[in-house]
């Protein structure tokens, strides 16, 4: 048994949506979810990161989880473009629920309507949530 396993040399490219619909604080699942996103990018997959529902709050500036000894996820979100993950979208309707505007978001993300997101979701191969 080895840690990496044997991988085939050529893998398909699939469209993978990663849906963040809850906060990234409070438990380790959000952090571990971001690890999957980065791994998908490392495998050269077509990665889309979608923030919707309560998850839009994960993009707020000035989060200070360090005060509870929790890990700050913002450096990871800041790193997404470095991994060539540039398709980051936020659901417009969820932004409105929380009265958020685009300039209140900590990272660059496209604000897209629920119906347009749905059109894109339909063409995805796999959807991930946590």
């Amino acid at each position: 048994m080895n840690l990496i396993g044997t991988l085939p040399l050529v893998l398909d490219v699939k469209t993978l949506f990663f849906i963040i619909n809850k906060g990234l604080q409070g438990n380790v699942c959000g952090q571990e979810f971001l690890d999957i996103i980065l791994m998908a990018a490392a495998f050269d997959q077509k990665v889309v990161v979608l923030f919707e529902g309560d998850g839009v709050n994960a993009l707020l500036k000035n989060q200070q989880p360090e005060c509870l000894n929790l890990k700050n996820m913002m450096p990871v979100l800041d790193t997404l473009p470095v991994y060539d993950i540039n398709d980051v979208i936020v659901e417009k309707e969820s932004m409105e629920v929380y009265g958020l505007t685009e300039n209140e978001l900590a990272i660059k993300a496209a604000v897209v309507s629920r119906s347009d997101i749905k059109k894109r979701l339909r063409s995805a191969d796999h959807l991930f949530g946590f």
């Binding site: 080895n2 993978l16 495998f43 796999h126």
Partner: peptide
């Protein structure tokens, strides 16, 4: 069971027609 990294999750996802998460 074997222990391995996230690369094996990714390979599984890429190779499969459907990926189902149970949470």
């Amino acid at each position: 069971f074997r222990i391995a990294g996230l690369g094996l999750l990714m390979e599984s996802v890429i190779e499969s027609d459907r990926h189902l998460t149970f949470g």
